[in-house]
């Protein structure tokens, strides 16, 4: 399927919309009618053709516009991209993984020629043609993580592994669900997860960390996480909370279907070979309730899930002001029929 890139916005007039084909491939995160935190990690093996799991990194119709939004965020706040000095090897590891994967999986869009350390990268959708020397920072216009990070959908962080811990020592984060890279840089796995309710006590993070520390080269894993966002806004950072916080009070029974978006993160975890670091990719998908209910199974399930949430999660995800309005609107689409297991459409 040849991709046609949309020209759309994630701020101000919010022209972002999914095409019908994109709706079908949305990674709906709820595998049953209720939700709670768990160590939901599975091997990141290639999924069905056309699905968001088909390739190592998913590129879709929003690619070009998302990259434009990222450039705007970085222009306003360079602190959204940071790397501590000891992460340079990991940065190159990330650049290699991203370029090799994209060129292999999307040969019509990206090409990579390698002759020893002499690399030639062509990104057709963004009109980039770059020759550089692998390992030489000065041969690129940005440091390697920022260079590829500006050319791939999703946020990324790099974790150094030492003393039986993972340390978030680098990242390029411009479309996050309300956490600050600038604040979290240098923290370990338990520390950056500190604000998450219930999961520490349930042992989720202890088990997840133990698993990640033993991750092997070439054996990536993935998991899904979700929240809700008002308007298709990518930059819901704490930095800009005074700009988007008000949106939460604008939801009415009339506009809820259009305004409230389910925001799903397809998270990938990769052991990087030379640095022994772990790459964490956070690929976000946004879909309005209106579009979600076009898939009957999702329309039935989502209100049930929203009703099942523990209060701590409602508070943490910032749903309190509009959750009931969303449930009331969604329930029209729930005929009470049983739903099939798994997240995919029937």
């Amino acid at each position: 399927m040849a991709l046609i890139f949309k020209d759309e916005t994630f701020r101000d007039d919010f022209t972002y919309k999914n095409s019908p084909a994109t709706i079908r491939r949305f990674p709906f995160p709820f595998i049953e009618d209720q939700y709670r935190y768990s160590v939901n990690i599975e091997p990141h093996t290639p999924g069905p053709k056309g699905s968001v799991y088909e390739f190592t990194f998913d590129i879709d119709e929003h690619y070009v516009s998302e990259m434009r939004d990222r450039a705007m965020v970085l222009q306003e706040d360079p602190g959204r991209c940071q790397a501590l000095p000891h992460m340079m090897t990991a940065q190159w590891d990330m650049l290699e993984l991203v370029m090799v994967s994209l060129a292999r999986d999307y040969p019509d869009l990206f090409t990579l020629h390698r002759d020893g350390a002499h690399w030639h990268w062509i990104n057709k959708p963004l009109n980039i043609d770059q020759k550089f020397t692998f390992g030489e920072v000065n041969s690129l216009p940005y440091e390697p993580m920022e260079y590829v990070g500006r050319q791939i959908q999703g946020d990324f962080s790099l974790q150094d592994q030492r003393d039986g811990q993972l340390w978030m020592d680098a990242g390029i984060i411009t479309s996050q669900a309300d956490w600050s890279l600038d604040f979290d840089v240098g923290m370990n796995f338990f520390e950056w997860h500190a604000p998450v309710p219930l999961a520490h006590e349930a042992g989720v993070f202890e088990r997840a960390l133990k698993f990640l520390l033993n991750m092997q080269i070439g054996q990536p894993v993935r998991r899904l996480n979700w929240t809700m966002t008002i308007n298709p806004r990518l930059d819901t950072s704490p930095e800009n909370y005074p700009k988007w916080g008000k949106d939460r009070t604008t939801v009415t029974p009339e506009n809820v279907g259009e305004k409230v978006h389910l925001r799903v993160e397809l998270q990938g975890l990769f052991r990087l070979p030379r640095s022994n670091a772990i790459l964490f990719s956070i690929r976000g998908y946004l879909m309005s309730l209106e579009q979600i209910v076009t898939v009957p199974k999702w329309g039935r399930r989502l209100p049930r899930v929203l009703k099942s949430l523990p209060p701590e999660l409602i508070e943490y995800k910032g749903l309190a002001r509009y959750r009931q309005t969303a449930i009331d609107w969604l329930e029209k689409y729930d005929d009470g029929a049983p739903t099939s297991p798994g997240g995919g459409p029937d």
């Binding site: 604040f183 240098g186 923290m187 520390e191 500190a194 704490p238 909370y241 005074p242 916080g245």
Partner: peptide, 14 residues
């Protein structure tokens, strides 16, 4: 109640 050792500070949010 979220602390950064690198910044030696707690986080303040509007």
């Amino acid at each position: 109640d979220h602390y950064s050792r690198r910044l030696a500070a707690f986080q303040g949010v509007c």
